[in-house]
Design a protein around this nucleic acid. Structure first.
Lengths: 103, 103
DNA sequence: ACGTTATGCAAGTAGCTACTTGCCTGTCAA
DNA sequence: TTGACAGGCAAGTAGCTACTTGCATAACGT
């Protein structure tokens, strides 16, 4: 899921779907090159959408020869909370376990 | 920054620092192999820490021959809110702009 | 039926990324 | 000072990832 967010093009796609949910592949293609200045081909976008769908961030709805893509922000919420929840246990020692390397 | 989160080892490091902030490189090494079952070498972890530091997720404090690593969750908050804030503008059309490919 | 439109699948390629290996610098203890 | 400890730098390698190219399939309009 994090790997899906690692790519700038995929983040731009999410930006696009946030602005206008339920777009087709061709519309995403056009808007990406027009509004984000990305010159990716149709297949590239299609593969990106596959990755986003596999990550659960995008859901698709088939309708005739069109395929609409909808953003799903549900998986985004717990991922960061995992590190935000704690992260107040400052220590300062940390030097008592030397000698392990694994090589 | 997203690329820093894309790697499982780096996420494990963040987990470790969340549990015990201010660890040294060697302690992180030992705890990763002990608690997370990761057999990464010292240099590998060092490079991961460099990436996390470049992403602003980890800050370091030098003290003698020790170097303590502290997690910084500040950059994590706005990244997801970017897509969570809107994402209610469902549309449904989206087929009116065919013909653009860019190739 | 026929051409067009919208999308899908698969193989191949180039660039990136994580990891290793080897050596070096600085710090602490005796 | 000497040896051990903690960490750093740099080059090389293997696997992954994004992208391209080419063809195939299904729905729609006429």
């Amino acid at each position: 899921m994090f790997k899906a967010l690692a790519d700038p093009t995929r983040r731009a796609i999410l930006d696009e779907l946030t602005e206008r949910n339920g777009q087709t592949l061709f519309e995403i293609c056009g808007r990406l090159s027009a509004r984000h200045g990305l010159g990716s081909s149709r297949q590239a976008i299609s593969q990106h959408l596959d990755v986003l769908q596999a990550a659960g961030l995008v859901e698709t709805r088939r309708e005739g020869r069109y395929k609409f893509h909808h953003i799903n922000t549900a998986p985004l919420e717990p991922i960061v909370a995992r590190w935000l929840s704690k992260a107040g246990t400052d220590d300062g020692d940390g030097a008592g376990s030397g000698g392990r390397d694994g090589t």
